[in-house]
């Protein structure tokens, strides 16, 4: 079971090569990586529990991201500000993600063995419904309180929302200057805190149940575990963490691209997790933390490296997408426990 995974090694070699060819300064890359670690860390961590519970990669983390965006848009609409506003966003996002996580869990209980493709479709469907609400529903069915965020035709919200009232509220806490690097200690602790929370959960009875269900639903059932409830809990936790992760992401960026900000969060998060050495059958927080660092290092340097090697920045860009998709495809093709546990 413990099989040395070559994927992180490949990422290290590729990143080193790309760093060399890009000519970027290591401190610039390091500060970028720290930023990405903060932005994406929690989202990647959100994937760990569903993998442990045998449900594979949860592409429906986009739904958690959408829950966060709904909270943000509503906060902007109601003119909420500052820390209180951020708190309200979190409360709304979490409420919505608990409900939607529960629904996803119920659906996934019907499609045992095909969870991954189903979560993917759920993500697309949720995107469609979300766009319908905010592009068509706003201004027709829903009366906005804040006219400034509407498109000039009066129907639908603008593509871009400025989040000045919430920008960098939490990431300016405890920032340490280390040479050329700014280290936002609080945010790093927050990501590590999420990692700690997951580690804690995996060392409780609930965690044992996740592991047991992940090894095989039939056996877990024989042990008297309510496998359906355990699987639903796994997805709810994942969705909630994804929502938190996306709130951190958005407030760090300070802008919300209303219709597209959540897109591909699932792909990048999954690829990062796998880059850290996880498989679709096994993942722990170490994989997630290492994966974010490795994946984003490569991501940051590859366009410049592509520009320098081929004098074509687009090639570096294509390489990036290939890395993201290819990592996932590789993990899916390589782990062949077959239908055994999927049933």
């Amino acid at each position: 079971m413990y099989r040395a995974n070559a994927v992180p090694a490949v990422f290290i070699v590729l990143s080193a090569l790309a760093l060399y060819f890009s000519g970027l300064s290591p401190s610039f890359v390091a500060s970028e990586v720290i930023t990405r670690f903060i932005r994406d860390g929690v989202m990647v961590l959100a994937l760990v529990i569903p993998v442990t519970a045998g449900m594979g990669l949860n592409f429906a983390v986009t739904v958690g991201a959408l829950a966060a965006q709904v909270g943000i848009v509503l906060a902007v609409d109601w003119g909420l500000q500052g820390a209180a506003g951020l708190f309200a966003i979190t409360a709304m996002g979490l409420g919505l993600s608990v409900v939607s996580g529960f629904l996803i869990g119920v659906m996934l209980n019907r499609v045992r063995g095909k969870e991954m493709i189903t979560t993917m479709i759920i993500g697309f469907l949720a995107t469609g419904i979300y766009q319908l609400v905010f592009m068509v529903g706003y201004g027709t069915v829903i009366r906005p309180a804040n006219q400034e965020m509407m498109l000039s035709r009066g129907i639908g919200i603008r593509n871009m929302l400025d989040l000045a009232p919430f920008r960098n509220i939490i990431d300016t806490i405890w920032v340490i200057q280390a040479g050329p690097l700014e280290i936002p200690l609080f945010m790093i602790l927050m990501v590590l805190g999420a990692a700690g929370l997951i580690t804690y959960l995996l060392h409780t009875r609930l965690g044992q149940q996740f592991k047991a269900v992940g090894e095989g639903v039939e056996k877990a059932e024989m042990l008297g575990i309510d496998t359906r409830a355990v699987r639903i809990k796994a997805i709810v936790l994942s969705t909630v963490l994804a929502c938190l992760g996306h709130i951190i992401f958005t407030q760090n960026i300070g802008m919300l691209n209303v219709y597209t900000a959540h897109m591909n969060t699932d792909i990048f998060a999954c690829a990062a997790l796998l880059a850290g050495g996880a498989s679709i059958l096994r993942a722990h927080v170490g994989h997630a933390l290492l994966g974010v660092l490795l994946f984003h290092s490569l991501f940051i340097v590859s366009p410049q490296a592509g520009q320098n090697i081929f004098s074509n920045a687009a090639l570096g860009e294509y390489f990036r997408t290939f890395v993201a998709y290819g990592t996932i495809a590789f993990a899916l093709v390589m782990s062949t426990r077959g239908r055994g546990s999927a049933g």
Partner: peptide, 28 residues
């Protein structure tokens, strides 16, 4: 044939990654 029972999700990502490989190809 390696991923019996998971063809759909594996196919999705094989397709996605193939697109990015072809992006290279189209460009050169």
């Amino acid at each position: 044939n390696r991923v019996k029972g998971r063809e759909e999700i594996a196919g999705t990502f094989v397709g996605f990654s193939f697109i990015s490989i072809m992006n290279f190809f189209w460009a050169v």
